[in-house]
Design a protein around this nucleic acid. Structure first.
Lengths: 210, 210
DNA sequence: TTGACTTTTAAACAAACGTTTGAAACAAAT
DNA sequence: ATTTGTTTCAAACGTTTGTTTAAAAGTCAA
């Protein structure tokens, strides 16, 4: 167990390339040969470091996806730290910012979402990992932040509201082929700003009760 | 070219099982052997009727997905036909109904969405087919229906609004593992009614300008 | 330098893949 | 009954798949 480190050990290179390829084409769409060729190492290294292909896929979530999601969650919390009781508008703005212009590069962001979207719609074991460690806690935090300021009828409504906001953020952020098809625009910085403004406005309206 | 018909020719059985399996696990996650075993026919039949696997996948969209989406579109239009100038609320209600309680069975509906969601996030040739024949026309219809009644600032806003509504409907309808995880409930009929009410309320609020 | 340990490698493995083949089964018309 | 054309089939094709093996290369303390 030397973990020779260096900034790019074989193990890390495999994880990096595996994530990129799994995000692009899914678990079944990628072969180990493809991953190890991209990572410039021998095919057997995958089995030496990760036992098998499925566990490599899960390890991408454990050691890359979940920590990265937590970084975004922290960035979201940090931008709220100044206010003691942030308004719903501030909460949603912080959320949209963290997810569209957060600490991740565009490419990281893209991979990150593609991985989880596959799991959202047809879950494997990785979904449970992500749900337990990041998605559910984020939801609970949002619920706690919004609950004091928002009253809109029965108990369950806020739950639906938050899920709708998730839906908007996810869809506008990651159905990019569809959004680009309809709007005819790419995701440059001004377009993202427009999108964030829209998300906040639409979501804030959605939350209002009368 | 006999097309012996009968209610379930080999060709139709292949298409049916192929759709179910592609929806469940994606193009790469399903083998021709698996499809033909499920369809109770020989493996070579796929190549006799569809030339190859990719074309079978595309044919699922051409001969099943697109006509089915058009049926839902028609159901949506039909439920609006009574009103001459339907209000936004009526439009959105009709939309949510067509997509959650429309002419499709639950199982059909599930497959239908899973197929297109895969394409939304990582498009293949099938995305272009679906976009040209159904998604873009639906968007334009919605735009035309909502435009007269909704004024909310600049031109582009309505476009974003409609996409947000898409996002909500898609997410709440088809990220069922996530929604069930958060709410702890299954998609029975009363839950769906709740969801539709919520979608309409949230979307209507979102559309409002002041 | 030796020796114990970790990591990487080339080569091979059985199994599964999409595709092709050529003959059998079937249908309809002459 | 024979012919013609369509549809199905079992069997095999060459590749590619995930995985295993056993040896080579590398690392580092004694």
């Amino acid at each position: 167990m030397t973990e020779t480190g260096g900034s790019h050990s074989t193990k890390e290179r495999i994880l990096e390339k595996a994530e990129a390829l799994f995000a692009e084409r899914g678990f079944h769409g990628v072969s180990i040969r493809e991953i190890t060729t991209a990572a410039k190492c021998n095919m057997a290294s995958v089995h030496y470091h990760f036992n098998n292909k499925l566990n490599l896929y899960l390890e991408v979530f454990r050691s890359r996806w979940i920590p990265r999601e937590k970084r975004m969650y922290d960035a979201f919390l940090a931008s709220l730290a100044e206010e003691k009781e942030p308004s719903p508008s501030e909460v949603i703005t912080a959320l949209a910012h963290a997810y569209l212009k957060g600490p991740l590069t565009d490419e990281e962001n893209r991979r990150h979402r593609q991985l989880i979207v596959r799991e959202l719609y047809t879950p494997t074991e990785a979904f449970k990992l992500a749900a337990d460690e990041t998605l559910r806690p984020l939801f609970k935090t949002l619920y706690g932040l919004l609950k004091p300021s928002v009253y809109n009828g029965s108990e369950g409504n806020l739950t639906f509201d938050i899920m709708s906001i998730f839906g908007i953020v996810l869809y506008l952020n990651y159905s990019r082929p569809m959004v680009s098809l309809i709007t005819g625009k790419g995701y440059d910085d001004t377009f993202k700003t427009l999108l964030i403004d829209h998300m906040v406005r639409f979501s804030m309206n959605g939350l209002s009760t009368e």
